[in-house]
């Protein structure tokens, strides 16, 4: 994919490596894979999540693994079916947010000067305006639905990526491989697409993961407030209905606990993946790792205090 231009592994291979090498990353990847499978094939097995299958507010049982809602629908079916839209929006928005952020951030960092000043101003303003309230205001005016949600989340979420990617572009701007490309007279677009973006691919992926965490959390929050399309089954609307149907009052913990757990597990898996990756690619942490391996090889116990590693 990309040349090993950094002294650290970059790009997709680094991820594959991280997942194989790091326990955290492998747990994260496995969890994520599980939910992806659930989203893809689960709905075929659970049937219609809106169907009224039994007496309302049944506690979990063999017939209904996670009980029934206040309307007599199967909570498990709703959880499984909700996974699909929620994850789709989450990853879709995560991807889009990074694309938009890369477009703005890389442009600003690469061209510098007035372009940079203007674009930086724009994303800094967007960064400092609180995201969720802005998302609520926009969502309140638009017809509710997954597309609206996605749009709102992209609008409120791209700025952070732009900022990070601009900084990274600035760092690459003066590297040899970019300078060389400029000297050979390649077009700016080509340099950005062929040289800079591939060099940043591992960072981009980390950004996508981070943005997906944001998108899932914010989406669930907005839907919980009733700003989604409440007639669609998603994690957020499941929680909305649980609250709307007085889950607390009726003691129906099973209507909100599993969904929250699912949201958390996906978020946790993504964080594990990111931090596992960080451990692998962060030179300092990696050197420490080597140090401990060395200690163990020579039969010593690693000390608790931080070894001194020159960065």
């Amino acid at each position: 994919m990309s040349d090993p231009r950094d002294n650290v592994r970059t790009g997709w291979s680094a991820w594959a490596w991280a997942i194989r090498r790091d326990r955290k990353a492998s747990i994260g990847a496995a969890l994520l894979l599980f939910f992806a499978a659930l989203a893809l094939i689960g709905p075929w097995f659970t049937g219609d999540p809106d169907a009224l299958v039994g007496v309302p507010l049944q506690a979990p049982s063999a017939a209904h693994w996670l009980g029934t809602t206040a309307q007599g629908q199967d909570v498990f079916a709703q959880l499984v079916v909700g996974t699909r839209i929620s994850l789709a929006i989450g990853f879709g928005v995560g991807l889009f947010v990074v694309l938009l952020g890369a477009l703005v951030g890389v442009t600003a960092g690469y061209f510098g000067g007035k372009v940079d000043a203007l674009l930086s101003l724009v994303f800094n303003v967007f960064l400092v305006i609180p995201g969720l309230p802005l998302a609520i205001v926009i969502a309140a005016y638009l017809p509710s639905g997954p597309l609206t949600l996605a749009l709102v989340l992209v609008v409120t979420g791209w700025a952070w990526n732009a900022r990070v990617l601009r900084a990274q572009t600035l760092a690459y701007r003066n590297r040899d491989f970019v300078s060389a490309a400029i000297v050979t007279g390649e077009s700016s677009a080509r340099i950005i697409v062929r040289e800079i973006l591939p060099a940043m691919s591992s960072l981009l992926l980390a950004q996508v993961i981070g943005s997906t965490i944001y998108a899932i959390g914010a989406q669930v929050g907005l839907e919980f407030l009733g700003l989604g399309d409440v007639s669609r089954v998603t994690w957020g609307t499941n929680l909305y209905w649980a609250q709307n149907d007085s889950a607390l009052l009726t003691g129906a913990w099973w209507t909100f606990a599993p969904t929250g757990l699912a949201v958390a597990l996906v978020g946790f898996a993504l964080s594990l993946l990111n931090s596992g990756f960080d451990e692998i690619t962060n030179p300092r942490l990696e050197m420490e790792r080597a140090w401990r391996r060395e200690l163990r090889r020579t039969g010593q116990v690693p000390g608790e205090s931080t070894p001194v590693v020159r960065g």
Partner: peptide
């Protein structure tokens, strides 16, 4: 409106 009012 209270769901399942007899129990709750």
């Amino acid at each position: 409106f209270i769901p399942a009012i007899d129990r709750v």
